[in-house]
């Protein structure tokens, strides 16, 4: 039985589950954009609201967030890049980097990244994949020369593959530990012993899955179900936008 459930739909019945997927997607975009535009205070204010929303919508938020430890590496990279590139007051005398400004900017960038991941987590955990597929299809439909159904189907499949990839990664890590490769000081060996089996596993799995899909008559697109937006959903959408306004004023 798999241990990773992050980015997977989990049945529930809170308000966010009942919100129309198009509006939910729009909220995700507005919140993500805001987080990258807001000041530190604004980001913290909006984060507080997001955390309240997480505790009210997800059944086991702490467990899900723990499963995202795979992202820690990217988080460290973001903070490190900022610490070693932003000029200002050096933290250690005699060394140009890291700087106080770089550390603060790196922490803010890292925090923004964490919040974006949590927003994605709320969206994927509370929205059925076929609803995501239908909403993306509907949003893209007015654009000419865009195969909205194929793009929507690929997006659903990509979301479906995230926990599988994380499972594979965990297995590879454990196999490395069992063979004492984990502690190797050679960074090239460290990276290659993870990426080579991961990529070959993904290619094999994708080949088998595409064949299984073909045998069930998949032809490049999935039929979606249209969802009409109701008045109470617009009200909920507006209520979710309320904290964004004061966040910009801070």
């Amino acid at each position: 039985m798999a241990e990773i459930t992050v980015f997977h739909f989990q049945a529930g019945n809170t308000l966010i589950y009942r919100l129309n997927t198009k509006l939910k997607l729009l909220l995700l975009l507005i919140y993500s954009f805001s987080i990258y535009q807001l000041s530190l205070k604004g980001v913290l204010f909006l984060s507080a609201f997001i955390f309240i929303a997480v505790s009210g919508t997800l059944t086991k938020p702490a467990g899900l967030i723990r499963q995202m430890k795979g992202f820690i590496f990217i988080l460290i990279l973001i903070v490190a890049a900022s610490m070693t590139s932003v000029t200002g007051d050096p933290l250690f005398t005699g060394l140009p980097f890291p700087t106080r400004e770089g550390l603060l900017s790196g922490m803010l960038a890292g925090w923004r990244f964490v919040m974006i991941i949590i927003l994605g987590l709320i969206f994927t955990t509370t929205t059925r994949p076929n609803q995501i597929h239908a909403a993306v299809g509907e949003i893209l439909k007015p654009f000419p020369l865009v195969n909205e159904s194929a793009i929507a189907a690929r997006m659903s499949l990509t979301i479906m593959f995230i926990p599988i990839l994380m499972d594979m990664l965990n297995e590879i890590r454990e196999a490395r530990k069992a063979r004492y490769i984990e502690g190797s000081r050679n960074p090239v060996k460290n990276i290659s012993t993870i990426t080579v089996p991961l990529i070959s596993g993904v290619i094999l799995r994708a080949g088998e899955t595409s064949m299984a899909m073909e045998s069930r008559l998949y032809s490049g697109a999935l039929p979606g179900t249209k969802q009409a937006v109701q008045r109470k959903e617009y009200l909920l959408f507006a209520a979710c936008l309320v904290p964004v306004v004061p966040a910009f004023l801070l």
């Binding site: 997977h8 739909f9 049945a11 059925r128 994949p129 076929n130 659903s156 499949l157 979301i159 479906m160 599988i164 799995r205 088998e208 899955t209 064949m211 299984a212 899909m213 045998s215 069930r216 008559l217 998949y218 032809s219 999935l222 039929p223």
Partner: peptide, 26 residues
């Protein structure tokens, strides 16, 4: 109909209901 050796590779949806509906939807 064909049931593949690796059931994992045959699963393409995020709920049991949706996965069963994949063929009829197509």
């Amino acid at each position: 109909g064909m049931v593949f050796q690796d059931a994992d590779s045959q699963i393409v949806s995020q709920t049991v209901w949706n996965d069963t509906a994949f063929g009829p939807e197509n």
